[in-house]
Design a protein around this nucleic acid. Structure first.
Length: 581
DNA sequence: CGAGCCCGCGCG
DNA sequence: AAAGCGCGCGGGCTCG
């Protein structure tokens, strides 16, 4: 059973019940087709949720927060915009009407950024002009799109994989909205203490904190230049050269190799200046509200299927400040990350049983060493990364032939993905997300490079671009399939937590935490590619850890069936994120 | 003065 | 050019 939700006016939604084929189950004006205020929507949705419905809507991030604010979470949805993007590009649906239609509004990026607070936005105003008639059109347009998606999946060569992918993408959108809503516990007082210890007390706007200013003074003295601004790479480079430091960039890893009295204070300055500008007091005041960090997650924000984020730099929380991430009193964190996820994904994708067994019951890189392929874990790691990223030189390049001898199937798969990209072809993940085609500039460059009279410069450019795209497609199949595994993992975690909180409900003995539907139940609060954090009442932490581990195994089976590959986790129960590895 | 680029660096 | 993939963000800087 589906319920299609569309916005008819800024403060109204229409709900239409659809059967399994997407056909309306009753005429307008009956209980199966109603138009409601936002407030009434939440009440109505709560009643319908128990019936095992799947909500179908254009954009989870636009609609779902309405329900979350009313303390309602839903089990299942179908996000039309995200699913359209997958089906539009998938090699599995290339013959569908959906994939061959001209670009339309379903190909546009998500509507305007969604503020947490209700209010008028550009998006609202656009719709406002359409009034009731617009609502009608909007609704039929959404239903038509839904039908096209169902048809594209049904006619594809792998409907099962695509259904799983669309369900995983959609539940990911639910999770993203829930995590943004709940927020990551973040103690401003601790953050402030960490900053003060590193930088000195907070200074007035435009001033450097004491420790940073002292380092700037030392740098100027060592360089014999009282005006150089260490925040300006060009100025710094000129000053370094004048002081006799032979360097062509100001990157820290280049400077590290040199011995000169300015290097030590300069490297410390760079580290602290980064902390101050990226995650300093200004960041804290902008992004931490009521001791919670609420980044906006963008499911499907990366073409590989990884999530992106917007605002606050949630993809790059430095280890330096993870001590500020502390569970509420009576609560704990379960922090888990998938060990060597991408190489394990590659082993399973390529059905390379030798590589899979190297990772069975152990660290995969250690297993590669134990198999005698290379001498050290560091070598195993750099060689694997080289295989997945397309290294050609250096240590990684030198080790690749040994990897290829030991794991021919895995390496053949990455090579063929690279060759496809170099030709301008597309590649696909396990569940059927396909890479984009290279743009017109790329095609032009290739054409110029292979013309009869092409000069060597043109040939070199074409080869270089082809190589770039080949490294992208080489990595796409692994990164993209790993992203699918992570979505399935999170979906299973969510399902397990839901069951756990129903079983343990209503009172697990923990104090209420955040407002909303997660006030007293374990819930996901952070996700980063292959890592999750669950915030849970302390008494349930061990159950949560078990659920997270079982979910990893289930995700592996969902993607790879019986293929014998392990997805072990490092999983810890902690009070502070800083204590997790 | 803002838009958009590059540089550099944090994360996986 | 860190040897190779994917991101977001802030500061400096140039251009219009």
């Amino acid at each position: 059973m589906y319920i299609l939700v569309t916005r008819t006016r800024p403060d109204r939604v229409r709900l239409r019940e659809l059967d399994a084929d997407g056909a309306p189950t009753g005429p307008a004006g009956t209980g199966t087709d109603v138009t409601l205020s936002d407030a009434a929507f939440a009440v109505h949705a709560r009643a319908r949720e128990d019936g095992g419905v799947r909500w179908v809507w254009e954009d989870t991030a636009e609609i779902y927060p309405l329900l979350l604010r009313a303390r309602l979470r839903v089990q299942r949805c179908h996000d039309l915009r995200l699913c359209h993007a997958i089906l539009r590009n998938s090699a599995l649906t290339g013959a569908s009407a959906l994939a061959n239609a001209p670009a339309g509004r379903w190909d546009a990026p998500a509507a305007v950024p969604r503020p947490e607070t209700a209010g008028s936005t550009l998006f609202d105003m656009d719709l406002g002009g359409a009034a009731e008639a617009g609502g009608e059109t909007q609704d039929e347009d959404a239903r038509t799109e839904f039908l096209a998606q169902l048809a594209a999946v049904a006619a594809s060569a792998e409907p099962g994989r695509l259904r799983l992918l669309l369900a995983a993408e959609s539940v990911g959108a639910l999770i993203a909205a829930e995590m943004q809503f709940a927020g990551l516990p973040w103690r401003s007082a601790i953050h402030d203490t960490l900053l003060t210890a590193e930088l000195g007390p907070r200074a007035a706007t435009g001033q450097r904190p004491a420790r940073l200013e002292a380092l700037a003074v030392r740098i100027r003295n060592e360089l014999g230049d009282q005006t150089v601004n260490p925040d300006s790479p060009p100025e710094l480079l000129r000053a370094l050269n004048r002081a006799g430091v032979q360097v062509t960039t100001t990157r820290a890893w280049e400077l590290e190799k040199l011995s000169h009295p300015v290097i030590e204070p300069l490297l410390r300055y760079k580290k602290l200046a980064r902390l101050q500008s990226a995650n300093g007091w200004y960041w804290m005041e902008t992004w931490i509200v009521d001791d919670r960090f609420h980044p906006e997650y963008l499911p499907g924000g990366v073409v590989t299927g990884r999530w992106a984020t917007r605002g606050g730099g949630a993809l790059q929380l430095p280890r330096q400040i993870r001590g500020a991430v502390v569970a509420d009193p009576g609560w704990r964190f379960v922090v888990a990350d998938a060990a060597q996820l991408e190489p394990r994904i590659l082993a399973a994708l390529s059905a390379d049983t030798a590589m899979a067994s190297a990772g069975r019951g152990t660290d995969l890189y250690a297993g590669i060493v134990a198999s005698g392929v290379v001498e050290t874990r560091a070598h195993a790691k750099v060689a694997m990364l080289g295989a997945m990223y397309g290294a050609t030189s250096g240590e990684s390049g030198r080790l690749l032939p040994r990897l290829a001898r030991a794991y021919p199937r895995a390496l053949a798969l990455t090579e063929s993905a690279a060759r496809a990209g170099e030709r301008g072809d597309i590649v696909s993940t396990r569940l059927g997300r396909s890479s984009p085609r290279p743009g017109p500039d790329w095609q032009d460059e290739q054409a110029r490079g292979s013309e009869d009279g092409a000069g060597s410069a043109a040939q070199r450019r074409a080869r270089s671009q082809a190589g770039d795209w080949g490294r992208f497609t080489r990595n796409f199949i692994v990164q993209g399939t790993a992203a699918e595994w992570a979505l399935c993992w999170m979906a299973e975690i969510r399902k397990g937590l839901w069951a756990l909180s129903s079983a343990a409900a209503p009172e697990s003995g923990a104090a209420r935490s955040a407002p909303g539907p997660f006030a007293s139940v374990p819930h996901l609060v952070f996700f980063l590619h292959d890592e999750v954090i669950v915030h849970t009442p302390a008494a349930l932490a061990d159950d949560v850890a078990r659920i997270v581990g079982e979910a990893a195994a289930t995700a592996g089976r969902l993607l790879f069936g019986d293929f014998p590959v392990d997805f072990p986790l490092t999983c810890v129960v902690v009070d502070s994120y800083a204590d997790a590895k």
